[in-house]
Amino acid sequence: MQKLAYKKIAVFGGVYNNYLALEALVKDAKNRGVEKLYCLGDLGAFGPNPDKVFPILLENNIEVVQGNYDNSIGNDLSDCQCGYTDPQDNYFAQISYDYTFANTSAEFKSYQKRLPKKIRIELGGKQVLLCHGSPRQTNEFLWESATPNHFLEKLFQNHESDIILTTHTGIHWQRQLSDDKLFANIGVIGRPENDGETHVWYALLTENGNIGIEFIPLEYDSKNLASEMKEENLPQEFIDTVLTGWWTTCLEILPVKERVRGKY
């Protein structure tokens, strides 16, 4: 475990090739006095030109947990292991996977292969466990409306820690549990949250006696991303999501409470 001397860290998930959001995040986090950046995985998918993400990670010394996407890309697998089960969801997932795989350099693939599945850090005396879907399964979906407290408490028992941070679903939420345990799904910076807003989200963890998690909405140049996606011949459905903030694909995996808030 790394014992951190930092007071403020930023944690984000799901870059999905969105290097413009990643650039904006680095700048925004530095302006807020963030000392260290952590990414919970899924570097590729959805957006254009995967290799543009790589130098930003290296230049800013960002530590990255391996997501299912990174595991697939790094190990030359034939699909993203996203965990979708609906044929329509899988159809679109495969388009973005094939594109990302074909456009990722060997060096970036090899980097993704070597990423750790979990990172443990100590911040302000609290043990923080960073993972992708859940501590027990990389591609597990933990939605706010489908994750009981007692289930989370069991996760804390089985994976000793005070704070668990995950991503994978694409929608952020947090819950305070008994025994001062704190769970959060920190969302993604790769695509908006299906709420009609074009911004994306990341999390700030600040040590001030206790640890608090603050979710930060992040604006980036979504129009520029959309035109680059068009140049790369990515599906119009993906471009519409970037421009409108509504999910148009991979919807069948959403529980009803999350689904009903969206447009499609």
């Binding site: 994750t147 009981p148 007692h150």
Partner: peptide
């Protein structure tokens, strides 16, 4: 009983 076991759904 299911709460003790950690049932998810």
């Amino acid at each position: 009983e299911s709460k003790e076991i950690g049932v998810k759904e």
